[in-house]
Design a protein around this nucleic acid. Structure first.
Lengths: 150, 150
DNA sequence: CAGCCTATTGCAACAGGTTGCAGTAGGTCT
DNA sequence: AGACCTACTGCAACCTGTTGCAATAGGCTG
């Protein structure tokens, strides 16, 4: 995941909006600029805050609505953190779930092989096609587990 | 899961509170009565509403704080629905995660064998001990998948 | 039974998001 | 350039929860 690949992620976005009959507006540009400076995760509130840094007149509902649109276009994905807050993942490489440690508050990506086993387990059980990028599990990480049993 | 086993779930609860130096109050009683009439899931808001039906003076924060306490005592468990709302599961048999279909909005319990495979996948990957009762996955159920590919 | 200690409550303010609606302003067509 | 259509924006009100704090009231003790 190089810098240039991250920049590529956003090139041509205005046209992708227009092709779909959507409009390219200064507010949407601001959200995308805020996202472009992001690696990994951002919560909705953080993003609102960052947009407000650029322009104090930013309205939260506009930011959230823009994020919905970006998700429809496949440019971001969202999940929910351990406490239910919205969390946005910026692609490429956004296709992963998350594990949260309830003890230390840490957060990790679910490794691809584990995600694949989860997908297979649910597909076998009920033919359920899980969206692995939206999976969030809560539990205890290895080091907190060791600390508790010591 | 018979009626009597559900009733048993709540017997002796006042004493369990007092043993821990906690107090047994009318407000807590109201929350437990509302829970006793519940099978499966309830959202926080639903529970507040039900308590308000019994006593319009019910204060939401009291209900939420009571739920936190009940969870500490192991009498309920909570997870987050697909949209991040809190969802409480009433035991016994509350030890399961949930699958939500993003297409039809349906919700199912994750079957025990699948849950076990998920637990194993994450344990192998990083030694992460997942709390399966808190797992929520979003995706597409079998019948919506069939409808989409038809 | 009265008194005391402190766990709980009620309240009010806040946090993160969502929604309905009237007005604004992109984009297109002439 | 002017006009038109309708996708967006801004706003205000709402929803689900959370938090800090002063007042209340369980329940133990003498």
């Amino acid at each position: 995941m190089t810098l240039s690949s991250e920049r590529d992620h956003w090139t041509g976005v205005p046209d992708r909006f227009r092709e779909r009959g959507m409009r390219w507006t200064p507010q949407r540009r601001a959200v995308i600029e805020a996202l472009a400076g992001t690696r990994g995760h951002v919560t909705g509130a953080e993003l609102v805050e960052r947009c407000r840094d650029r322009d104090p007149r930013t309205i939260p509902s506009t930011v959230y609505r823009t994020l919905d649109v970006l998700e429809e276009l496949g440019l971001v994905r969202h999940g929910h953190a351990a406490d239910g807050r919205e969390e946005y993942h910026v692609g490429p490489g956004a296709d992963h779930g998350h594990m949260y440690c309830a003890s230390c508050g840490g957060s990790w990506e679910i490794p691809v092989p584990a995600a694949e086993r989860i997908r297979a387990a649910l597909a076998d059980a009920d033919g359920f096609e899980v969206d692995v990028s939206h999976v969030t599990v809560v539990g205890r990480c290895r080091s907190c587990g060791r600390a508790a049993s010591a």
